[in-house]
């Protein structure tokens, strides 16, 4: 009994190791193929579930909603978080530093930040999505409506009723 479960665990272990070294191909909407480790691809819950459901790992995964530039950047994040260990304090600090630099670059290019956010949402990459949405939220903080419209290129489209409500908010609060 004990040996049986031990053997099963060893087999599962071996399988996990094997799957960890498997390579997966992700294809952008421009047809460009990116080969990544399974550990990296598994950062995406969307791909993870397709792999676990016995999806066509060999054929790769076409991503019709993601362009090459965005996919390359998303993979950069997944590689860092999927392929590297984050057990020790130093490893965690290195990862935090990576995240900080990663998001600082996106913050400087709002259009790219938008694309990466959409990709993170579509691929369900939780950590990346949290990172980009927090960056967007931080941009909003402390700004007037006009400043926000400028920062994001948003058109003013509030209705007269909205304006009426806003006036009400200002006098009562």
């Amino acid at each position: 009994m004990a040996t049986g479960s031990g053997a099963a665990a060893a087999a599962a272990d071996a399988e996990e190791k094997e799957s960890g070294s498997r390579m997966i191909t992700l294809t952008s909407n421009e047809g460009k193929a990116f080969v990544v480790t399974e550990a990296s691809a598994r950062q995406s819950a969307t791909i993870r579930s397709m792999v676990d459901d016995g999806g066509c790992v060999d054929k790769g995964f076409p991503l019709p909603n993601v362009d090459s530039k965005t996919l390359a950047r998303v993979i950069q994040y997944c590689d860092e978080h999927g392929n590297k260990e984050a057990h020790t304090v130093d490893e965690r600090a290195a990862l935090a530093k990576f995240d900080k630099d990663f998001i600082a670059e996106l913050d400087a290019d709002k259009a790219f930040l938008y694309d990466v956010t959409m990709a993170a949402n579509y691929l369900h990459i939780q950590g990346l999505f949290a990172l980009t949405t927090q960056c967007i939220a931080d941009t909003i903080k402390g700004k007037t409506p006009e400043e926000i419209r400028t920062a994001f290129g948003i058109e003013y489209d509030l209705t007269a009723q909205d304006e009426e409500e806003i006036k009400e908010e200002d006098t009562h609060a």
Binding site: E146, R149, D162
Partner: peptide, 28 residues
């Protein structure tokens, strides 16, 4: 849904009277 997740991270001061609620109708 995505905007709601962003707004959840904006913080109360800006939600109460900040620009986020007045930038455009979708964000509002």
């Amino acid at each position: 849904d995505l905007l709601v997740m962003i707004m959840s991270r904006v913080g109360l001061p800006d939600l109460l009277s900040g620009g986020a609620t007045r930038a455009c109708s979708a964000w509002r």
